[in-house]
Design a protein around this nucleic acid. Structure first.
Length: 468
RNA sequence: GGCCCGUUCGUCUAUCGGUUAGGACACCAGGUUUUCAACCUGGGAAGAGGGGUUCGACUCCCCUACGGGCUGCCA
């Protein structure tokens, strides 16, 4: 309790939908902060004006909201901080840790081309302005470059990856402020993380190399370096980098496919993180358990079967009213027609006998089809086979017996058993035509549950329809 | 090309020098059951390859292979 409060952040660039990998990064940051009484901040990295769109920002916020990853305060626009970034760049200039570079992009391209022609596969660009006398500065646009050390090495002390050493001669004098006066990502992240008081930077390991350059900025400004935690990326089922051809990569896709958010959180938490044999847990438990020590070092692949299985576990444990609300949201996200008031009521009543049989919302709705549908019942081919003249006769008799039944499972059980026995058939022989009459299908919840859910009148009506 | 990171059952992973290498999903078999699902029991299934270090390596070191990332006035 005497340790400084933890501040984490999720900093996506609004150039597209919220990626499943980004969602997991956000989740790790959220779990870490929330489990330790810290803050979880959101910053939109929109310094690339060409590619950033408000639609993408909205999609990201929506995705995080659906996943239940709430952030503290308002989402910060990185672009809005540009004057502060420029100010820091100039302060670096004053400190002598940065310099004005008048090389044009054509000159830089020519330099690289010449290097390549000379057989040098790659060489860092060395600006001729690095040590130029300010008196020789032309009156022309310039970029501000970091004056990075050219010898020695930079060590990143990463919680996940260990100590990673990068040779300084591999790094160029990165541009911190573009010639148009706008900051680059490298500068902006560092300034914002510092200004926002971020203590733990948990992000994809595609930034691992960048951390070395960013650390130079921290050093140049004499700022405290945050705790680094670079987590491995998520790959598709084939082990390749996740891309559109793997199917769902946007979290919105998962919502539209009807995966419950709680299951997504659980599954995503276990993707690249583990604590012993813990597999299935609530979000509160996850907050308790989650820690940087449990993060793995190798990339993980998506496994939809396991996702579904995890979701099924959560579906069965969510209370009925909450499930109904989630289903409403799912229907809207999937562009499916909303439930009527009557259907919502029926679904709520059917919930107990379908929720532990389904893994996703569409599956749950399908299993509750007997309750949501209305007469006349559409009887499919497989179910229809159970409806022959003999079984119709039995259903007629059953209808009479049911007229005055008290609608309890016990009584229904005894009536059905009596009817079956009277005709010298097994219960299964009676259940098949009953299922056909009640649901029009051969695979349904228990016939008792269906009758209890739809009620006496509707049961009688459906039986009469089928027996006719 | 250069640099950085990674590699345990099909998949997610446990293991932090000594284990019959454990769990979960998936798969297979059986059970339960009015159908389907759920559920229960059981089964097969792994240390990329090669060198070291060590009494002893999945664990530590090196090489190779494979995968990924970075190498921009993108983020």
């Amino acid at each position: 309790m005497s340790s400084p409060p933890i501040v984490t952040r999720f900093a996506p660039s609004p150039t597209g939908y919220l990626h499943i990998g980004g969602a997991r990064t956000a989740l790790f940051n959220w779990l870490f902060a929330r489990g330790r009484g810290g803050k979880f901040l959101l910053r939109i990295e929109d310094t690339d004006r060409e590619r950033s769109t408000p639609e993408a920002t909205a999609a990201i916020l929506q995705g995080l909201t659906w996943l239940g990853l709430d952030w503290d305060g308002e989402a910060v626009s990185q672009f809005d901080q540009r004057h502060r970034h420029a100010q820091v760049a100039h302060e670096m200039l004053d400190r002598g840790t940065a310099y004005r570079c008048f090389s044009t992009q054509d000159e830089i391209a020519a330099f690289r081309a010449a290097q390549e022609a000379a057989g040098v596969s790659y060489a860092v660009f060395q600006s001729p302005w690095r040590d130029a006398d300010p008196a020789t500065h032309p009156d022309a646009p310039y970029a501000i470059r970091m004056k990075a050390p050219r010898t020695g090495e930079t060590k990143i002390n990463d919680t996940v990856q260990g100590i990673v050493t990068v040779r300084n001669d591999q790094l160029d004098d990165m541009i911190v402020l573009r010639s148009d006066g706008n900051p680059t990502y490298m500068l902006a992240v560092v300034v914002d993380d510092h200004d926002m008081g971020v203590t733990h930077v948990i992000r994809g390991d595609d930034h691992l190399n960048n951390a070395a350059r960013q650390q130079m900025v921290y050093d140049a400004m004499d700022w405290a370096i945050p705790v680094w935690a670079h987590i491995p990326l998520i790959h598709g089922p084939d082990g390749k980098k996740l891309s559109k051809r793997h199917g769902a990569t946007a979290v919105g896709d998962y919502q539209a496919q009807g995966y419950p958010a709680a299951g997504m959180r659980n599954y995503l938490t276990r993707l690249g993180w583990a604590q012993g044999d813990a597999e299935l847990f609530t979000t509160d438990q996850a907050k308790e358990m989650f820690g940087l020590e449990g993060i793995g070092r190798s990339p993980a692949r998506l496994d939809f079967k396991k996702l579904e299985s995890t979701c099924g576990w959560h579906l069965a444990r969510t209370d009925d009213a909450a499930l109904l609300h989630e289903i409403d949201a799912y229907l809207a996200a999937a562009n499916r027609p909303a439930l009527t008031v009557a259907q919502r009521d029926l679904l709520l009543r059917a919930m107990y006998c379908v929720k532990d049989r389904a893994k996703t919302f569409p599956e749950l709705i399908d299993k509750a089809q007997f309750a949501l549908t209305s007469r006349p019942i559409d009887i499919d081919e497989a179910a229809g086979k159970a409806l022959d003249d003999v079984s119709r006769g039995i259903l007629k008799e059953l209808t009479l017996r049911l007229q005055n039944a008290s609608w309890t499972k016990e009584e229904l059980e005894s009536i059905l058993t009596e009817v079956a026995t009277a005709h010298g058939i097994g219960f299964g022989k009676l259940a098949a035509p009953l299922r056909a009459a009640l649901a029009g299908r051969s695979a349904t919840p228990s016939v008792y549950d269906m009758m209890l859910v739809i009620g006496l009148d509707e049961t009688i009506a459906r039986l009469q329809d089928a027996a006719a």
